[in-house]
Design a protein around this nucleic acid. Sequence first.
DNA 1: CTGAAAAAAGGACATTTGTCCCGCTCAAAA
DNA 2: TTTTGAGCGGGACAAATGTCCTTTTTTCAG
Lengths: 190, 190
Amino acid sequence: MIRTNPKLLDYAKNLLEKQPTKVSVTDYKRKGEIMGQGHRYPYVGIIIKGIVKCYINEANGKAFIQEFMTEGMEVGELEFFEKGGATCSVSAVTSVTILEIPHQLFKTLLDEDLTFNRLILESLADKVRYKAPRHAFQTSYSLERNIEKMGELYPDFLKVLPKGDIANYLGVSARSLNRALKTLREESNT
Amino acid sequence: MIRTNPKLLDYAKNLLEKQPTKVSVTDYKRKGEIMGQGHRYPYVGIIIKGIVKCYINEANGKAFIQEFMTEGMEVGELEFFEKGGATCSVSAVTSVTILEIPHQLFKTLLDEDLTFNRLILESLADKVRYKAPRHAFQTSYSLERNIEKMGELYPDFLKVLPKGDIANYLGVSARSLNRALKTLREESNT
DNA sequence: CTGAAAAAAGGACATTTGTCCCGCTCAAAA
DNA sequence: TTTTGAGCGGGACAAATGTCCTTTTTTCAG
């Protein structure tokens, strides 16, 4: 539920150690904007530390969170493949450290390092694979079951993530989330 | 809304022409099952002709359609990267022709043909990019707007796709879909 | 430490959606 | 040709969710 990619994290750390001059590292504080929907960035980011949310803001003011990500997950890689503004905004849920790989280096690694190439392929495949069951479950089951599922995948979610973010991840209003949480509380007191 | 990938289609046709002994072609009739959730297949498929739906069946009997796909789209590529059963079922909405690339050849092409490698990377990136705005829109706007949007993206959708599939794509019951269609009809008669 | 702003909880009501029906039509199989 | 089943359309009611608003709690900058 908060996604991670240990292999890519290892690769990223190694890259930082071996080629420190070719990449850069940026820190963001809680609520800082890492990427803004529609903007361009000349690098692909890999999360070294912290939790981010990746989300879309709709014209009507609603936001929908695609995924929460932490160590080893990529951000901004879609924009490498199709130039154009970022599809999603990315912002820091906790304080965050990002490794930035300039597009040019990213391209070189993709073309010349088969290991890296495979890591990126798998990372993309993972993102596709993740979304399918998630959205299927979300539309097929009650809000209560969805909340229970979050609890199974990540028991501390209520302590770590703000309620508003949880609601935006589940695609419901904060009011509905609260109602469902209350129902669950009452059920467990029986 | 019915997704396509012209570049990969070209590549696939070329592959079939140049290496006819290394790949195979299978036809499916309407409603035929191309892949079954949880099953394994020793090849990656590329749609040569026809429309398929890619969907997940939930334990409670509900189905959720991930995407409709046609020429040039891949199926079963996720299972190449992470062995294990198919995440989704894939079935034929119209009669369909699939080019099957055995895993071994797929691997060789990925590792040795940079053009192919890039096509697959872009295809995966496309699938990720596609899902984000779709689900954001779906949860952020009314059913009526979602139907209107389908109409903009694919004006014939009501003629080509069964109502049940449209409902499962939008994540609502057939009853709700009908209600919304009626509302839209009445609005346009004003 | 204090005041302002954000986050959280929930009441009241409106709206949307689901569930369970029934009846109709049409196309494929017997 | 007849029959059967799938797909379609919609009525009636129940359940879920949204909207709007108020109150309380927490956080944090000054």
